[in-house]
Design a protein around this nucleic acid. Structure first.
Lengths: 243, 243
DNA sequence: TAGTTCAACTTGTATATACAACTTAGCATA
DNA sequence: TATGCTAAGTTGTATATACAAGTTGAACTA
């Protein structure tokens, strides 16, 4: 994969990224203008422009008409408060995703969940616990209770290939969800499993999902405070607006 | 607002969006190819292409080389966290709201915020710290930096009557917001102010708000883990616009 | 000195063109 | 019939060019 065959706008993008990474251009400092890149990288202005545009779209640069293109202050490019596949999230950050299955079994539905799942005492429910990792460091404990009516084959799945989230979305299209987010003190299991430091709290997300009127799953996600943030953004415009 | 002066790629974008909205093209169906748009909309291929590219970037379309451009299936939208008046929230729960102003002053903008607010070193900024209480128990520390350009009379307000949030929404209509949510260990000030128990962590929300292109305010909200949860809910039926 | 104008430089929009890479359907061949 | 090839259509990359629009600083003027 020499640069000879590489797409030229990628060469320019990498040139800029490299320069930011090694400190040639710092936050809010100007990077080379389109015309300077034409000279330096020996590409057309449209190609240089495409590189800068894409980096702007990615939040790495920002542009001001008439002034120039600048290095954007680094934001944690983390996902929105969105229901996503954690494996995708990790690989989008350019890291290695892996996971570890700790428990996957059928068991009697715990009493406090009976009425949520509309089950009777003694009815079975599926229960899984797994740990998701980013570059081999644990970033999420996922404890999940699944409604057998919604996903009868849940226990037969191989969750190395496909996260529970993805599998459930496939067999029971998600129509509704509810979250509850809170900070919590870690218990000993979390401290060990998430490799927490002394007194490091966890960010907890409780999520309940429905497919049509059927409650599909209730899950609890625990994240180490030091390695996980939730970010969200919204705009009030963004419809068919012009100007 | 006629199409004569409109940017031409916007005309094409709206043409496609309109067609999707009124059902001309449904999910996974092909929309007109670049060359067809050249004919239909009387633009160059590069302009048609830009329109399709941007709609693809926005997740409205997807493209397959050699096959065409298609309408993307509706994505789950992020369950946005509601920006609400904490006073209303508390009284909706049937409790008594009160607050305490700890600091309200003009000061030099801290260095790490200069660029965000587009200010120069030495420029003034408004700074407030207050504690919000539910039934006289503290549930939120609000530290806020306010852009004087957006709310010149911020210092003259009586925040017993109206929370900063409400006041700012009134003088500078909110158009954009960004959040960052995380669990944190409490520092001594928080422990005292929020009356935290030993090792009780806090749920921290960083929020930046804009009115049009003007950054109005940056604030940090800290909540006792034991007395505060964030909840969100969404459905796929309708795009939620919890404002 | 204070204000204005202007030239140079920046990004933003738009067009025309060329060829590469990929997909599909239909045709030709074994 | 089954296979392979090709032509036509699609998106992807790249260039050259032109002008619009916004910013800045230096030269000029009152």
């Amino acid at each position: 994969m020499t640069e000879a065959n590489a797409r030229r706008y990628m060469v320019v993008k990498n040139f800029i990224k490299q320069g930011i990474e090694d400190g040639s251009w710092k936050e809010h400092k100007r990077v080379p203008s389109e015309n300077q890149l034409v000279e330096t990288c020996n590409v057309s202005r449209m190609t240089a422009r495409r590189a800068l545009d894409e980096l702007t779209e990615e939040g790495i640069l920002y542009r001001v008409q008439g002034r120039g293109t600048f290095v954007a202050p680094k934001k944690l490019h983390s996902p929105m408060l969105e229901i996503r596949n954690i494996a995708d999230e990790v690989s989008e950050r350019g890291h290695k995703y892996s996971n570890e299955l700790i428990l996957l079994q059928k068991e009697q539905c715990p009493n406090h969940l009976l009425h949520y799942f509309d089950l009777d005492e003694g009815d079975d429910i599926y229960h899984s616990i797994m740990v998701h990792k980013e570059d081999n460091k644990p970033i999420q404990i996922e404890q999940r209770y699944v409604n057998p009516k919604a996903a009868p084959d849940y226990l037969k799945q191989n969750f190395n290939e496909m996260t529970p989230n993805v599998y459930l979305s496939a067999v029971a299209p998600l129509t509704q969800a509810e979250h509850q987010i809170e900070a919590k003190e870690a218990d000993p299991f979390m401290r060990v499993t998430l490799k927490l430091q002394d007194n490091e709290p966890v960010l907890s997300i409780d999520r309940t999902t429905w497919s049509r009127d059927l409650l599909v799953s209730y899950c609890q996600l625990f994240h180490p405070a030091s390695r996980f943030k939730l970010t969200g953004r919204f705009t009030t415009e963004h419809q068919l607006t012009e100007l």
